[in-house]
Structures are given as C-alpha cells and as structure tokens.
Design a protein around this nucleic acid. Sequence first.
DNA 1: CTTTCTTGTATACGCCCGTATACCCAAGAT
DNA 2: ATCTTGGGTATACGGGCGTATACAAGAAAG
Lengths: 228, 228
Amino acid sequence: MSQLRRATARGKRLLMEAALRLLARNRSFQALGLRELAREAGLNPNTFYRHFKTLDDLGLALIESIAEQLRKPLRERRREAAMSADDERPRSPNELGFDLGRGERVTHESVKSFFDFVLAHPEAFLVGVREFYGPSPVLRRALRETIHGFATDLADDIRDFDLLPNVDSDTVAQLSETVMQQLFLLSLDYIESKDQREAIQRQAEREVLMLFTGAIVLSRQAPEYVVD
Amino acid sequence: MSQLRRATARGKRLLMEAALRLLARNRSFQALGLRELAREAGLNPNTFYRHFKTLDDLGLALIESIAEQLRKPLRERRREAAMSADDERPRSPNELGFDLGRGERVTHESVKSFFDFVLAHPEAFLVGVREFYGPSPVLRRALRETIHGFATDLADDIRDFDLLPNVDSDTVAQLSETVMQQLFLLSLDYIESKDQREAIQRQAEREVLMLFTGAIVLSRQAPEYVVD
DNA sequence: CTTTCTTGTATACGCCCGTATACCCAAGAT
DNA sequence: ATCTTGGGTATACGGGCGTATACAAGAAAG
C-alpha cells in the first residue's frame, strides 16, 4: 500500500454499515446472509470477498470499529455529568466515610449520561447486547473486550472522583465490570421500551447504589490484611 | 380428542428435543432451519407442520416445557441447601439487625445449589441465556416470564428465611429479579468455562452479598414513610 | 365393520444461497 | 507508456431451503 494506512475502502464501509442496519432490525448475526448483506449495501455479492474472508471477519471489524468510536466519547460524557453533579457543597461523610448524598447525585447524573449516550447510538447498543450472549465466540470475545475497556474507564473515574473510599482497587475493578455490564444489558430494554425508560434508569441507579453501599460496608471488616 | 389431554405426540417431542440439541450446539434460534430440525430428529420435514405453525411456535413450546420442568426442582434444591446452611448456631445480628455470618453461609449454599442445578441441565441454561437477548420477541418474552417465576420463588424464600430483615417486600422482589437474572446470565460462563467455575461462583456470592448489604443499609433511612 | 382423525411420509417446485471463474477499469508504481 | 494491483461486476453452478399436494397406516369413534 502506498501510505501506511489507506482510507477504508468504500465497499468495506458500505458492507459494515449494511450489517449494522440489518442486525439492528432484529436479525441475528448468524442468520445474516452474504447476499442479503450485499443487497442491503447496494453491491455485488462477490464484493464481500474483496474485503472479508468470512462473516465472522466482518462482524469482528464492525465491533472493533464501533468500540473505537464510542469508548472515548462515552467516558467524556460521564465525566462531564459527574462533574456537574459534584457541586460546591461541602462533603458530609457518614460514619463509614461515605457521603451518600453526593454518591446519589453523582450516580444519578452518570447513569443518566450513559442512557443518553445509548439513545444517541441505538444501533450499536442494540446489536452489541444481542450478540453479547450470541452463538459466535468471536463476536462474544470482542464484545467482552469492549465492555471490559468501558469498565476500566469507569473504575478509573470512580477512583478519580473518590466515590468508593476505603474500597481496595481490585474490588473497585470488579464492581466496575459488574456495573458496566449491567448498564450495557439494560440499554437494550431502555432503547426498546420507550415508556419504561424512567423506571429502568431509576432501577439502575438503585442497583449501583446498593452495590456501592454494600461494597463499602463489607470492606469495613477486611480492610488490609487477608482473612484465611 | 378422546381425553382432554393426550400424551405429547412422538414427533412433537422428537422435534423439540432436536431443537434443544441443535441450539445447545452454538446455533442461534433464528438460524435454525425446518429441514435441519427434521433431519436431526430423524423425521420427514413435513412432520413439522403437523405440530407447529411456525418456528417461533416450536421455540415457545420448548421454553414453556423446560420452564415447567425446572421451576419446582430448582426451588427445592435451593431450600434444601439453605436449610443445611441454617444450622443450630444462635443468630448474631449486628447493629442493623443483619446476621452477616448467617447471610454468608446461606448465600454460599444457595448459590452453590444454583450452579449445581445448572450443571445438571446445561442445555436448558445454555439455550436460555443465548436467546434471552436474542432477536425473537416471542422467545424473549417467554424467557423473561420464566426468570420472573424463578425470581418470585426466590423472593418468597428470602422472606421465609428472614434474610433481609427490615427491607420492604417491593425491594425484596426487585432485588430477587436482579439476583436471579444475574445468576441466570452467569450460568452460561459457568457451563462453558470449566476452569473458572470457582471464581464465577465466588463472584456471584460477593455480588449477592453486596446487594443484600446495600439494600439493608439503604432501607435504614426510609423504613416506613414515603420520602418526597 | 366402516369411517374419521391423527400422525407420518414421498415427491416435487421454485427460490435463494454461497461461491467459482472470468472480465473490467482506475490508480499507482515502474 | 506499460504493468500491477485493488476494488467492483457479470454470469453461472449445484445445493439446500420452505412448502404445496398427495398418499399411507394405525387408532378411535360410530
């Protein structure tokens, strides 16, 4: 190739976009057909082979492309939201060193920002959740990696915002995986059930707060040393 | 028909069993073919139409049949496990009225019993999780109903065992849904990742305990009256 | 004993699928 | 100016698919 990285070929882009459109329309990835794909993209069926070896190949490229586009903005929005909730009020920690009011405000805004973000990219989340437990191991691995990346960002932010004081970083990491995955899975219902969005968001907030509170309380009795 | 309910016809049973087998072998329901199904069942393709109108029809029958077979035994095993953990020791509630040691023991045994049950019915859980977020609305609704039933049993047991004292029943119900769904989803990894089973089970226990602890602590400040 | 129903089969048709082969053309490279 | 290569197309093949129609055999009903 002339430059180290040429722009993605037109056909490749069209095929990936077509796939995303079809998958978002209640089609399982495994049930996707190569001709169907080409038809949707307005291309000759054989064009597929110019860019991909197998359908899994396309799926992987699609997920990686989307993941790369979404990761940074998602984090940015969350940080903005958390900042806006973290006002000038003085902190008022309870006997566990946890400021519940602040935790509630930050959680509320962060969760809200997540679901807003979901609504801005409905196809990506729809397809992502559908295939997260789907039958293609390749896609599942890629999606797990993606959520893991999101969760890593979340863990860093929780630390930056000092949201889980006195909770060791392994627990924070594990908690972030749980929370991010749960939010991710909830996004499907959030998109599809327009009239339940408020309830879903509230429920998500409650779950996060319970997990955080539980983690803080349980960290109290085994703070540093190892229990055998 | 002579009796009000005749035994399920041989072909119908064979087709449902074939479907379960194929779905458990990394095939998405949407990608199932009618001829493929008949081949696996050792039947003529047209036999399908004798028993089902559409593939969704078969899927629904399959899920309902499995759900009916599993619900009671699952609860039975959990109750036995919880009983065995609930030994003669006197209870030692902390300042929140929560006996953490007892909670840990009962949770441990209950979660263990769940995953043991999963391993006894791997195909059912494999397929259930895969299709839980799958593209067929009919199957998804049926699976949700099933998990909801399991969660209802769990909520009743939590009350019977007095595991969440001072937590109102709506919260217990909601918590049970969350926990049961989470366990359900984890069952896929539990089945597939033989070498991570211990870790998955431990993590599940921790999550349940965090949620329970969090729920108890958060219930402290809004026990009876409504906060506006 | 005959009729009717239920369950399963055989054959057949038309359609869509994946893919092999061959051709085309524009853009760079030489 | 010629050659190579990347991206797109046209045609064609064999095979599997869903399903319509017609037939068969055992069980139940009359």
